[in-house]
């Protein structure tokens, strides 16, 4: 028993000494860094418009049952290029995940009894590193998900690269002609890692 008490005394003495905090000084020039920047139009959110609106970059209410509605700045009226882009910069390769916080809603925060909600999978997106009237294309576009889509990441983006995006929305039949929106999310992670 005496030995045990002595041992415990020694342990707690050492524990008291071990509370000091070793820190890790960091030499910035030796470590990996990256950054993500998005275009002004993307920062304003993704808002969809009808057949007339996308040609003049103005948001108009969507028709019930309409499909492939463009986001307002999918095609800039002056040059047919998308105004939605992500710029990656840094010393490492990154993967980019897309996603949304929630379904599309007609009211802010999906609040109110008159709120209409559309499943987020009705939004599709696509990305390329070239930007013209044809690309990014609606062909093989990817359904948006809640949270982050780790299956359809934009892989291995190197430094000083622009990733261009376009978005489309299908309005199911019997949904009123409102402006539907949600909070979209973009995350950059080290290449090969999962988004959280």
């Amino acid at each position: 028993m005496i030995f045990l008490l002595f041992l415990l005394f020694v342990v707690f003495q050492i524990m008291a000494g071990a509370q000091e905090s070793p820190t890790y000084p960091m030499n910035v020039s030796l470590i990996s860094v990256y950054s993500l920047t998005i275009s002004d139009k993307l920062a304003e959110g993704v808002w969809f418009t009808n057949e007339t609106g996308y040609k003049v970059n103005i948001q108009y209410p969507l028709l019930s049952g309409s499909s492939d509605n463009n986001a307002t700045w999918n095609y800039n009226a002056t040059d047919d290029k998308t105004e939605y882009w992500i710029y990656v910069s840094g010393s490492v390769l990154v993967d980019i995940c897309n996603g949304a916080k929630d379904n599309l809603c007609s009211n802010p925060d999906c609040a109110g009894v008159d709120n209409e909600e559309i499943v987020i999978g009705n939004v599709t997106w696509n990305s390329t590193t070239t930007n013209d009237a044809s690309y990014p294309s609606i062909l093989s576009s990817i359904p948006m998900v809640k949270g982050y889509d780790n299956t359809n990441k934009i892989f291995n983006i190197g430094s000083d690269t622009y990733v261009y995006l376009r978005y489309w929305l299908d309005i199911p039949p019997a949904y009123p002609a409102y402006n539907y929106s949600t909070i979209y999310k973009i995350q950059a992670v080290l290449a090969g890692e999962t988004c959280v």
Binding site: Y34, S35, L36, I38, L42, A43, E44, G45, V46, K101, S181, I183, Y184, K185, I186, Q187, A188, V189, L190, E193, C195, V196
Partner: peptide, 8 residues
């Protein structure tokens, strides 16, 4: 705010 971006 409307478009959330994050780095990890």
């Amino acid at each position: 705010k409307i478009m959330k971006i994050s780095v990890v």
